[in-house]
Simulated scan of single mutants.
Amino acid sequence: MQQDIQVTIVGSSNVDITALMARLPGPGETVLADSYQLSPGGKGANQALAAQLAGAATEFIGAVGKDSHSEVALGQLDGAGVKLDRVARSSQPTGVAIIQVDSGAENSIAVVSGANSTMTDQAVKAAGAIDGILVLQGEIPASGIKAAMDAATDRIVLNLAPVIELDRDYLLKANPLVVNEHEAEAVLHQLNPHLGLRFNGRYERLAAMLIEEGITSVVITLGASGCLVADKFPAENGGAQVRPLPAAKVKAVDTTGAGDAFTGALAARLANGEDLVQAAEFAGKFAALTVQAHGAQASYPRSLENL
């Protein structure tokens, strides 16, 4: 019997082609890679797997092609029990991400959207009702993101990565907005394009300003430095309260998909009744486990015993 869905991810699904190398090439440079691997990815699919593995009954709504890559793209989700009934089969090819990872775990990523580009407002509306907490990213068209928000009946977790243009009213639906420090600044300038500020490491102020612009809650991920959780003080106090949460100390070998692991795990814990700080603390530990192995979905923990 299908468990009631707690988290629904509307987003992208890709096949990751990952090349491992000593260092990333510079412009116009060719660098010999040590090896490569083919694996499932895409921010939406990654987050769906993370949410399922973090303990929430999860559905993924997206699109893949009618090609052999589609089996790779959806294989781990299917194996983990993510509901896939509303994944569309498009005439466009399955999306592909071309990833380079160096010996210091830094990466560069180029994404070919393929079928993900068909996730417009029409496709999302055709998928029907959205159950549970809704999680969105920036790898599908803005019209699809807005249609999903319009259909949401629970809180919305918006991981606006990459940052794309959204109307102010839709940005303010995020609860929380989950972004890294660069994305946070880009979103703030969408909300208030007249700002000329550059934050240069003053990320607590950046988080507070996003709250002051009207976003209900914000999580800014800072990699090895942990994250910041921000929300509003009670009405009588006004302003924003910002809390830094440290990261678990681990040796990273590949950070690909770690941000997605964080977002999916965060949504799962919110769906299971934790507050935002508790959920972010768990999500940080979950994400820290993923950077200790290569790949995105393949690195996600299959057991919560060590958390």
Rank of each mutant, 00 (worst) to 15 (best):
A22P: 14
Q190Y: 02
R89I: 09
T221C: 05
A80H: 03
R86Q: 01
K83I: 13
T8D: 05
T263L: 00
A127Q: 03
G273E: 11
A261V: 05
L32M: 13
N306Q: 15
G75H: 13
L84Y: 08
L134S: 04
D67H: 03
R302N: 14
A235E: 15
L24S: 02
D167G: 13
T18M: 11
S103A: 12
A247T: 02
V135P: 03
L228E: 10
A57H: 14
A22G: 15
E29N: 04
D150I: 04
Q122C: 12
L49C: 01
G257T: 04
V178D: 06
G257K: 02
I130E: 09
A287C: 03
N272E: 09
L228R: 03
D121G: 15
V163W: 07
V111M: 05
P27G: 08
T153R: 14
V135H: 04
F60D: 01
I130S: 07
V87N: 09
A19Y: 13
S299D: 09
L171V: 02
V277M: 11
G264I: 01
E305Y: 10
L188V: 00
G295V: 08
M119Y: 06
N200Q: 15
D102W: 08
T263E: 02
E204M: 11
V219H: 04
L53P: 00
L206R: 03
